[in-house]
Design a protein around this nucleic acid. Structure first.
Lengths: 222, 222
DNA sequence: CCAAAAGTGTTATTGATACACCCATGC
DNA sequence: GCATGGGTGTATCAATAACACTTTTGG
């Protein structure tokens, strides 16, 4: 039995991650197939038990790196879910984090025929283990809200990107079309972007200026 | 030793509360004096261990009622703090909530000479146990941010109140003066308020209309 | 020369801010 | 009649939203 130093029975503590990326014009989350009961064979969020010597954020970063090989991403604590019935085996509370990962930064060993990890649309979810669907919905709401008033989407972009890439990501997250001229005006006026001087040469059209964020940290727009 | 069903050693889990009220033109938080080591005699946040059968919110409501006698308040999960060093005895993570309580609703048994509970200015804090000062700062920031774009301050008001009471609370939380005419225009335009038809009669001046919130739930302004 | 995406300004509307005087009451 | 807070409108400024054509490149 788990007891604390006052003799109370204590719950288990896990850390679960909602890993977002943008690919193929849609917002996606990482799901892993469960290899154990309960919910054997169901898709679930990557996660694991908190180790006794690590902080919550350290646990989140450890799981992140185990699953993606990526280390430096936008990472934010989301919420702590603690319904007594959420895990049928035992009382387990889960501290959740969400992270944004540029699709290009992901190492995708397609060749290894990995079938237990997928990137799945965040809006059309299958049945998931535990309360993980609720967690993803909550994370998606938070991401949408923050995209509305901050530059959080920098987490999805590679070092250099076109303004049209940036606009596309906003449109996917906010799920609405944006006016190109107003968008560019607003972004450039924010002072958060800088021209790289380099132009994107791919494609049978006028080459686009590549930009990057001056600081890789969250800031408010306007 | 605390272990989960996979054999991992597990941390303890507490729920701590940042209880806010507004009184005497200032934002205050409830502090309780610790009667045990560590931090014996230090002020700290009200809190306690999560019981095995209760949800996190149930634990928060239980502690709330134990300390204040109040049941229906604005209550919101704040953040989960889990630095391995935050409790010198053992690994303990704490899920924190904040609540807003109208000063008038508090039962204050002054007569009982209670010296182990105080309502202290949220901006000028004494030394506190554990990481509780950090928790209060975080809660205060969240409250200020939410007051800026929502009607969250309804949590501080009694059933009926004057528009000047409402304005005063905004001024205290946001820490700046507001224009009376613009404030009233904005609030009445929000559609969240309703005249009660009753006027406040106390005071040697023109009686003020008393208002109440149509719905006791959080909404966005504008 | 055609297709494809890049790039660029002005106008209209809306919301935010600044600001000062009269009113109703109790003492 | 005086002190105290209640109550009200307009004008300016800033931010947002709507809207279409020319440019540069590859094939």
């Amino acid at each position: 039995m788990n007891t604390n130093y006052d003799g109370y029975e204590q719950p288990g503590v896990t850390v679960d991650l909602v890993l977002f990326t943008v690919e193929q014009d849609s917002l996606k989350v990482m799901l892993v197939k469960r290899a154990e009961t309960p919910f054997l064979g169901y898709w679930s969020l990557p996660g694991g038990f908190l180790k006794i010597g690590e902080s919550l954020e350290e646990a989140a970063l450890r799981i992140l790196e185990e699953k993606t090989g990526v280390k430096e991403v936008y990472l934010e604590q989301l919420y702590t879910f603690g319904d007594p019935e959420r895990d049928p085996r035992a009382r387990v509370i889960t501290v959740t984090y969400f992270a944004l990962i540029p699709w290009k930064n992901l190492v995708r060993p397609e060749s290894k025929k990995i079938t237990d990890v997928i990137w799945h649309s965040a809006t059309q979810l299958p049945r998931l283990a535990f309360d993980h669907k609720e967690i993803i919905k909550y994370a998606t709401q938070r991401l949408q809200a923050k995209a509305g008033y901050s530059n959080i989407v920098y987490g999805f972009l590679p070092d250099r990107f076109r303004l049209s890439d940036l606009q596309k990501i906003y449109e996917i997250i906010l799920n609405k079309d944006l006016d190109k001229r107003n968008f560019r005006k607003r972004m450039l006026a924010s002072g958060l972007l800088e021209e790289t001087g380099v132009r994107d040469i791919a494609g049978a059209h006028r080459p686009a200026m590549l930009y990057h964020f001056k600081k890789m940290e969250i800031a408010f727009l306007d």
